[in-house]
């Protein structure tokens, strides 16, 4: 198992959680798989039916469980299988960034983007960019301590 958070310098491999909607972005990730192009293995995928299901608490939970970055991928505007869940996800992401910024967590650690079922290459590009961005930022030093999912506290990571 690769432990990474204290790996100063070149050895740092960021851990990223990717929330992918079932209909577009998860299918886009499968499409990338079909093309059999290699990409960084740092993103751990958690599938949800719709990006609208991504509760901001999931993102905070990911940070508290050790993620250095979070990727939320949705259907393109107008393409949502559930009509408008992706708009909700986009709105929540904006709101969440303000909270994260207030606690000194960089916006770049939480990226929201659109990947369609056909966009395998776009999935790879977004994912690779995210990994490189977070790699450049270094390990997340803030930790979100939370046993109760309804009350999140952000502290220095030990």
């Amino acid at each position: 198992m690769s432990d990474n958070n204290n790996g100063a310098g070149g050895g740092f491999e960021p851990k990223i959680v990717g929330f992918l909607c079932n209909w577009c972005s998860y299918a886009g990730a499968d499409k990338a798989g079909g093309s059999q192009k290699s990409y960084p293995p740092n993103v751990n995928v958690v599938k949800v039916m719709c990006s609208g299901r991504v509760d901001p608490q999931f993102v905070l939970k990911a940070y508290s469980a050790g993620a250095d970055g979070v990727l939320i991928l949705a259907c393109h505007p107008g393409d949502c299988h559930y009509k408008e869940g992706n708009y909700r996800a986009m709105q929540r992401h904006r709101m969440l960034l303000r909270v994260l910024n207030q606690h000194g967590i960089e916006s770049e650690r939480c990226r929201f983007d659109y990947v369609s079922a056909g966009e395998g290459d776009r999935f790879i590009n977004v994912l690779t960019e995210m990994v490189e961005t977070v790699r450049a930022l270094g390990p997340l030093t803030k930790a979100i301590i939370s046993d109760n999912p309804n009350s999140n506290m952000i502290e220095e990571r030990s």
Partner: peptide, 8 residues
């Protein structure tokens, strides 16, 4: 339809 937007 089970999208879960309301849940979030």
């Amino acid at each position: 339809q089970g999208c879960g937007t309301c849940v979030a």
